[in-house]
């Protein structure tokens, strides 16, 4: 704690010497980035608050505000879909980070027979687009009798080669001396992993968790093929389902209201989660952790 405060003071005093113009310039750039990133989100928000007849309104502030879209969203299966999406994404993240952290550590810290072939296989699997993999995955899931279960979505998504790659990168940055020292103290290999390595790569675990979570959160094809009942749908499929009614011209009322409101409803808890996760993974990291 003390150290962190001291560290911050060093940088802050460093900042003091910078010319004010430079700080203003930086502020302006940050402001611009935030505005550009946030603008479509803002547009989504105000679109969700507009009556469906005013969706095409160009004004920055809507001329009338209504919650009818949110009421419409709760009339659909959106709450259920949201729950499914969260459940699947969370379980995928927990499982995916666990197995990838273990394996990432294994690949980064040990030399063993078959290491490069196995890792190369994992990497090469990334190159095949998921559209080519659906049919085989469907066949395999059927063999396992897992169709129409969350597992059919979670298991393939949790075995994420990209996340393994990312975590291996993080683990390989750690200096070997750390481990030698711990080994001299008589620590077992799993203890090394858990007490020495994991705390040092927490930002990496956070990034990996985000990657897995978002991958599951946005997954479309896999849940589409594996889950067939509309009360099992995840948000992306559910929204696509609402949208597709429109495309066929059979829809009675425009689904855009439910889609925009549903998206806002789904983003808000996610952003809150992000804020929490940040404190957990990124925020708590002390700057000098890796220097030892």
């Amino acid at each position: 704690m003390r150290k962190r405060v001291a560290g911050r003071e060093v940088t802050r005093s460093g900042r003091k010497h910078k010319p004010i113009a430079q700080r203003l310039g930086r502020g302006a750039v940050v402001g611009l980035i935030v505005v550009v990133a946030a603008f479509p989100l803002y547009w989504l928000l105000i679109s969700s608050l507009k009556p469906s007849t005013r969706l095409g309104e160009v004004a920055l502030i809507p001329s009338s505000v209504t919650f009818e879209n949110y009421i419409a969203a709760f009339d659909t299966q959106i709450p259920r879909w949201l729950l499914n999406t969260f459940g699947i994404a969370l379980l995928t993240t927990l499982l995916g980070v666990s197995v990838a952290a273990l394996a990432g550590f294994g690949f980064a810290r040990y030399r063993f027979r078959g290491r490069s072939v196995l890792f190369g296989m994992v990497l090469a699997s990334l190159a095949i687009p998921e559209y080519a993999l659906v049919l085989p995955q469907f066949t395999i899931m059927r063999q396992f009798g897992l169709l129409n279960t969350w597992a059919a979505v979670i298991l393939p998504l949790a075995a994420n080669a990209l996340v393994l790659f990312l975590l291996r990168q993080y683990f390989s940055q750690l200096p070997e001396e750390l481990f030698d020292a711990a080994r001299l103290d008589g620590s077992g290999e799993f203890r090394l992993f858990w007490t020495v390595a994991v705390p040092l790569v927490r930002p990496g675990l956070g990034a990996a968790g985000l990657l897995l979570f978002l991958n599951a959160w946005n997954a479309y094809l896999l849940p589409l093929v594996m889950l067939t009942n509309s009360d099992q749908f995840t948000m992306p499929i559910g929204l696509a389902f609402l949208h597709s009614q429109l495309n066929f011209g059979i829809v009675e009322t425009s689904p855009w209201g439910a889609i925009t409101a549903g998206t806002v409803i789904s983003i808000v808890p996610l952003i809150l989660c992000l804020l929490v996760m940040q404190r957990q993974f990124i925020g708590s990291l002390t700057a000098g952790a890796v220097k030892a």
Partner: peptide, 14 residues
């Protein structure tokens, strides 16, 4: 971070 990160959480249809 949270602001610039938010877009990827948005469903593609939206």
């Amino acid at each position: 971070q949270v602001v610039i990160f938010a877009p990827i959480t948005m469903s593609l249809i939206a």
